[in-house]
């Protein structure tokens, strides 16, 4: 959550001094999103304390319905694995993949966009053609192909999601950089003899942060969804418990024991909803015009 401090210079309006967190909490939807996300992060962080055993262990009889046995409040799946434990440990996997995949896209997307927008010309043309090439392939099918070729495991899934999700970020950053490139701040820096690297990193990128943060929060949500879809199609890492993998396993018994697929499905819905609400809230809170009102 350190991004909050970094973003401060982006908004010159007087109300900015209130702090981002306060401005966020003033919006009900963002407050709900943030609360849900904090809860999910708390679940992930406490998974090893609350459920110290391996969530893949077959701990009791299969197909215990939620509430049937107090020891297993959310019931057990077809192999007798504790669903509550799976939800807690699955939160770690989902958040980890969401965060790391987004980081990968950020590095590629922001890098490409900044170089492309700052230098323009032939480099811009080449980088944008590459970006378009990536954009023409549906990102999910692309990720599916990558995971199918490399074997499904947490690192390959993360990388596959990361390297298929960056093109929109690159376009966004390029547009922002193009706006700033010929502005007075950058022209003044050039006149003072600052290096290109210094200008990009210190003057341009901080001023593009607001839209990037908003899209990053959405990217995390879509990364969680993509991982879930991959796991649902059987391309998850079978050695770790993930929400999508739980839904995929539960699909077989959907007609008889629907809770096996529904509970992790609700977890995915909650996480994605939280991130989207937060993204919306950040968009409003980081928008200087909104803040000044």
């Amino acid at each position: 959550m350190t991004v909050f401090e970094i973003s401060a210079p982006a908004a010159p309006a007087p109300r900015a001094r209130d702090g981002l967190l306060l401005r966020l909490l003033r919006q009900p939807s963002a407050a709900v999103g943030l609360t849900l996300l904090v809860l999910i992060i708390a679940m992930a962080a406490s998974a090893n304390l609350v459920f110290p055993d391996d969530p893949l262990d077959m701990v009791t009889q299969p197909f215990l319905w939620p509430g049937e046995d107090a020891a297993y409040p959310l019931g057990t799946d077809m192999l007798g694995r504790d669903i509550a434990s799976g939800i807690f440990h699955g939160a770690r996997v989902s958040l980890l993949i969401g965060a790391v995949a987004t980081l990968v896209s950020l590095v590629i997307g922001v890098g490409t966009g900044a170089l492309s927008g700052y230098y323009g010309g032939r480099l811009d043309a080449v980088l944008m053609r590459v970006t378009e090439l990536f954009q023409t392939i549906p990102p999910f099918l692309f990720a599916l192909a990558i995971v199918a070729i490399l074997q499904p495991s947490i690192p390959t899934i993360t990388v596959a999601i990361g390297i298929t999700a960056w093109p929109s970020l690159a376009r966004l950053v390029r547009a922002e950089v193009l706006k700033l490139r010929h502005g007075e701040l950058v022209q003044a820096s050039i006149a003072l003899g600052a290096s290109d690297l210094r200008i990009i990193v210190l003057h341009i990128l901080p001023n593009t942060l607001a839209p990037v943060i908003v899209s990053a929060s959405i990217l995390v949500a879509s990364a969680i969804l993509t991982e879930s879809s991959l796991a649902f199609l059987g391309l998850g890492d079978p050695n770790v418990v993930s929400w999508g993998g739980m839904v995929g396993a539960g699909r077989e018994v959907l007609r008889t024991d629907w809770y096996v697929a529904t509970i992790p499905g609700l977890a995915i819905v909650t996480a994605v909803l939280a991130l989207n609400l937060l993204g919306d809230g950040l968009n409003d809170a980081l928008n200087p015009k909104e803040a000044a009102r």
Binding site: D54, L56, D57, M58, M78, L79, Q151, P152, G234, L235, P238, N239, A249, E252
Partner: peptide, 26 residues
């Protein structure tokens, strides 16, 4: 899924006797 679950069961069963198994899909 039946074959996958068999692999998952084997992994957990072997873990009990101290053999750490990694399930691979392809």
């Amino acid at each position: 899924d039946d074959f996958k679950r068999t692999a998952e069961y084997l992994k957990q069963a072997l873990k009990r006797i101290g053999v750490d198994a990694n399930v691979r899909s392809q």
